[in-house]
Design a protein around this nucleic acid. Structure first.
Length: 657
RNA sequence: CGGGCUGUGGCGCAGUUUGGUUAGCGCGUCGGUCUGGGGGACCGAAGGUCGGAGGUUCAAAUCCUCUCAGCCCGACCA
C-alpha cells in the first residue's frame, strides 16, 4: 500500500526509473549515481506563492548561507534547484523537533530516543508518524533490504493492502486469523481485510505460472501491513501498521525450496551485517503458519519479546519455543512399586507434596496441566519441577489456539480440582507427556480426587500416553544439547523470520505447473519476512548511549554533521559553506548545523540524533586552518587541517557504508 | 481479555486526599538586548474546552456515575 501522505507521481518515465515500492522517489545517496533530469513540473514540489508564508525576518535578514546550485530563494523560501537535486540539508530549515524530555510513558530506549530526537511521533497506540529524520533512516534500511533481495534475483511487486475476504476464505485464514486481522465492510456490504501478510495474494498471481520452466520464482514486496495487535508497545517494536519486506519463493520441489531458502538465509545474514545488527539465526517454531525449517534472526535486547537459548561454547541457538537441553538423570527407586492411593488433605502444590510425609521431591512428581486446544481437552504431563512451554504443546498437537482450562472445565473432565490431578486412568482427555519422563518409575501424582494422590506411578505401565512430545521449557544453566556446556537465555527482538511454507497456499489458491513429464505439480513455497520499522528500532536499541542515538553510517539519517560553533563568525561560516559544498559534491550525506544557537545546544542535538561524524568548525582552531572531527561512537576529537577534512571524512564514510 | 497506573498549554510535571480568587512551575516557542566551544542571562509576550459526557453543589481540575484514550505487567501474537 502506498502510505498516506507520500508524494504521488504519475509521470511514467520517472516512475519507471526510480520509483520505489511505495511510489516515492528514494533518497539518492549512492556516491556513483546522479539522477537524470526530472521534469520540473512532476516530482519537485514547490510551495505556491500564496502558501509560502514568508516571515518578515527572512527578507530583513537575508541568509548568510547559500546553496551551491541554487538559483536563489523563491518567494523567500529557499529551494534547491540545479542539475543535481539533493535534498536541503541545512538544519536551520529542516523540521527536526528534538525534545529535552521524552514522553513520560515511553520506556524502551529506542522509543524514547526516536521521539526525543525528532524521528517520529505517536498518532495513537501502535501507529506512528515518521518525521523526516525517521523516514530517512527507514528509507536506508529499506534500501539495504531491497538491494540484497535484488542481489539474489528476487523481483519486487506492489500489492494491494486491502483484500477481499474471498482470498482469505480460500486459504482458510479468514477464520483462522481471528481478531488479529483488521476487517471492514464496503458500501455494498462486502467483507474486506487489511492485509497482514500476502501469501494469498501472491499465490493468486502465481496461478499464472504454468510451467516448471518458469520456476523458481522469488517475489517480494516492501509494504504496509496491518495487524490488530492486542498490545502494541515499545514504540516501533510492536505496532499495528508497519512496513515489512515479505518475500515468497516458488519451486518445483523440495530441493528447489532448499536452495531458495538458503539464498534467503545468506541474504539475511548480509542484510543484518550491513545494518550492523548482531542478529543470531535461531531455530524457531513456525507457529500457526505450519511448515518446517523455521529460522528467526534475533537481535539481543532487553526491549525484545522473545527468549533465545544459546550456547556460547558451540553456537547452538534456538527460540525457547523450540530449544532443548540435556538433563541430569534422576534416580528412581529400582523396584517398581505398586500403584497406591494415599490421602493428602490440603496438599495442592508441588512444593507442598514435596514436603508432605510420604510425598516425593519435585523431580519425582508428575505435573498435569489441563489445556483446551482448539476446543479439545488435553492434559500436558511434565516433571514436577519443569515448566510447560505452551508453544511447544501447540506445535506438538498441531493446533491453532490453546489456553489453560478453567477450573470448572478441569473438574468436569477429570473429577478433581487443579492440585489433585494426574494422568492415571483418565478418559476423554488426550494425554501428552513430556519426553523427559520416558522410563520414569515410582513417581507421585494427583489421583484425580480432591485430597488424594498416587504413589508408585510408572509412566509406561500406568499412564495411557497418547503422545510423547518435548513440552518442557529450558532454563538457563542447563546443559547444551550439542556440547553439554551451560546454556544461557537471551532476550531478543525478532528482526527477521524465514521458513519453508510447503504447499498450503499454492494448493489453496490452485497453483499448478506442468513438469518435464507433462504432469501437473503443485509448487512449494517459502516465506521470508523482515520488519523495516522494527529494524530501525532494533538498531536504535543496539546503538545508543546516555546522550542519544549512535547510528551506523549505513542507516544514519545524515552521515556527517558540520557544527558551526558560532554562525556570527564569518570565517567559520565561509569555511563551513565551502566544506558543505565539497561534501555534497562528493555525495556525502552532510547536515549543516547553521542554526543561530549556542554551541552546547548544537553538540547535544548532534549527539541526540546520532550522526556518526561531527565536524566542528569554530574560531578556536580555524585560525590555524584546522577543524575538529569527532566520531559519535568514541567521542574522541582529533584536529584535522581544513584542506584535508573533506577527503578524510569522505573516505571514512565510504568505508563504513 | 485480567491486573495496575495515568490523562492539566508543544514536552515534563504540581495542584485532586480536605470543592472556594484570575489553574501554577520547569523546559520549549515568539519578540528584544546582552552573549557565543557543552542545553547561557535578562526583559517582554503568546499559548490551557484541566480527555469526554452527565450529575451533585451557591461554587468542580478537585466529589459521584458513565465513557474514551494512553502506558506498564500478564494472557495473546508469522
Amino acid at each position: 500500500m502506498e502510505p498516506a501522505g507520500r508524494t504521488r507521481c504519475s509521470n511514467p518515465s520517472w516512475r519507471a526509473r526510480s520509483a520505489t515500492a511505495s511510489g516515492r522517489p528514494s533518497i539518492e545517496l549512492a556516491p556513483t549515481w546522479s539522477p537524470a533530469p526530472i521534469p520540473a513540473a512532476c516530482c519537485t514540489w514547490r510551495p505556491p506563492a500564496s502558501t509560502c508564508a514568508t516571515p518578515s525576518s527572512w527578507s530583513r535578514r537575508p541568509s548568510i548561507w547559500t546553496e551551491p546550485a541554487a538559483a536563489g530563494a523563491r518567494n523567500g523560501c529557499p529551494v534547491d534547484t540545479g542539475p543535481v537535486r539533493l535534498p536541503l540539508m541545512r538544519w536551520s530549515k529542516l523540521f527536526i523537533p528534538t525534545l529535552r524530555d521524552a514522553p513520560g510513558d515511553a520506556e524502551a530506549a529506542s522509543h524514547r530516543l526516536l521521539v526525543r530526537g525528532g524521528f517520529m511521533r505517536q498518532l495513537h497506540a501502535g501507529h506512528y508518524s515518521l518525521l523526516p529524520l525517521g523516514l530517512r533512516v527507514h528509507d536506508k534500511v529499506e534500501r539495504i533490504v531491497r538491494e540484497e533481495m535484488n542481489a539474489i534475483g528476487a523481483q519486487e511487486f506492489l500489492l494491494p493492502a486491502m483484500h477481499p475476504a474471498s482470498v482469505w476464505e480460500q486459504s482458510g485464514r479468514w477464520q483462522l486469523m481471528g481478531d488479529e486481522m483488521f476487517r471492514l465492510t464496503d458500501r455494498k456490504g462486502a467483507d474486506l481485510a487489511l492485509g497482514m501478510t500476502h501469501e494469498e495474494v501472491i499465490a493468486g498471481i502465481a496461478t499464472e505460472v504454468s510451467s516448471y520452466r518458469m520456476l523458481p520464482q522469488l517475489w517480494y514486496q516492501i509494504q504496509w501491513k496491518f495487524r490488530d495487535e492486542p498490545r502494541p508497545k515499545a514504540g516501533l517494536l510492536r505496532v499495528r501498521e508497519f512496513a515489512m519486506k515479505d518475500s515468497y519463493s516458488f519451486d518445483i520441489d523440495e530441493a528447489g525450496l532448499d536452495a531458495s531458502f538458503d539464498l534467503h538465509h545468506d541474504a539475511y545474514v548480509r542484510i543484518f551485517e550491513r545494518l550492523s545488527l548482531p542478529a543470531i539465526p535461531v531455530e524457531a517454531s513456525s507457529g500457526a503458519m505450519g511448515g518446517s525449517d523455521s529460522i528467526e534472526f534475533m537481535v539481543p535486547s532487553p526491549a525484545g519479546e522473545d527468549d533465545v537459548v544459546r550456547c556460547v561454547a558451540c553456537g547452538y541457538a534456538a527460540n525457547i519455543e523450540r530449544a532443548t537441553s540435556q538433563l541430569e538423570p534422576v534416580a528412581d527407586p529400582a523396584e517398581a512399586a505398586a500403584l497406591e492411593r494415599f490421602a493428602t488433605p490440603g496438599v495442592v502444590t508441588i512444593a507442598a507434596l514435596a514436603a508432605f510425609e510420604g510425598g516425593a521431591p519435585a523431580d519425582r512428581q508428575l505435573k498435569s496441566l489441563i489445556m483446551v486446544a482448539d476446543g479439545e481437552m488435553v492434559a500436558a504431563v511434565l516433571r514436577g519441577d519443569h515448566q510447560l512451554n505452551l508453544q511447544k504443546l501447540s506445535d506438538a498437537l498441531g493446533v491453532a489456539a490453546i489456553r489453560p482450562a478453567e477450573p470448572e472445565e478441569t473438574e468436569a473432565a477429570l473429577g478433581a480440582k487443579p492440585g489433585s490431578l494426574g494422568p492415571v486412568d483418565v478418559s476423554g482427555v488426550r494425554v501428552v507427556v513430556d519426553r523427559a519422563l520416558e522410563g520414569r518409575t515410582n513417581m507421585v501424582t494427583g489421583a484425580n480426587a480432591d485430597g488424594f494422590h498416587l504413589r508408585g506411578v510408572s509412566i509406561e505401565r500406568d499412564v495411557q500416553v497418547d503422545l510423547w512430545a518435548d513440552l518442557r521449557e529450558v532454563s538457563a544453566g542447563e546443559a547444551c544439547p550439542n556440547c553439554g556446556r551451560p546454556l544461557e537465555i537471551v532476550r531478543c527482538i525478532e528482526a527477521g523470520h524465514i521458513f519453508k511454507l510447503g504447499r498450503k497456499y499454492t494448493e489453496a489458491m490452485g497453483v499448478t505447473v506442468l513438469d518435464e513429464d507433462g504432469k501437473t505439480r503443485v509448487p512449494i513455497m517459502g516465506s521470508y519476512g523482515i520488519g523495516i520499522g522494527r529494524g530501525v528500532a532494533a538498531i536504535a536499541e543496539t546503538f545508543h548511549d546516555d546522550n542519544g542515538l549512535m547510528w551506523p553510517v549505513a542507516v544514519a539519517p545524515y552521515e556527517v554533521v558540520i557544527t558551526v560553533v558560532n554562525v556570527k563568525d564569518e570565517a567559520s561560516t565561509a569555511a563551513a559553506q565551502a566544506l558543505y559544498d565539497e561534501l555534497r559534491a562528493a555525495h556525502v550525506d552532510v547536515l549543516l548545523d547553521d542554526r543561530n544557537a549556542r554551541a552546547g545546544v548544537k553538540f547535544a542535538d548532534a549527539e541526540l540524533i546520532g550522526i556518526p561524524f561531527r565536524i566542528t568548525i569554530g574560531p578556536r582552531t580555524l585560525g590555524d586552518g584546522e577543524v575538529e572531527l569527532t566520531p559519535r561512537r568514541t567521542g574522541d576529537t582529533t584536529v584535522v587541517a581544513i584542506e584535508a577534512i573533506a577527503a578524510e571524512v569522505t573516505a571514512l564514510v565510504a568505508d563504513a557504508r
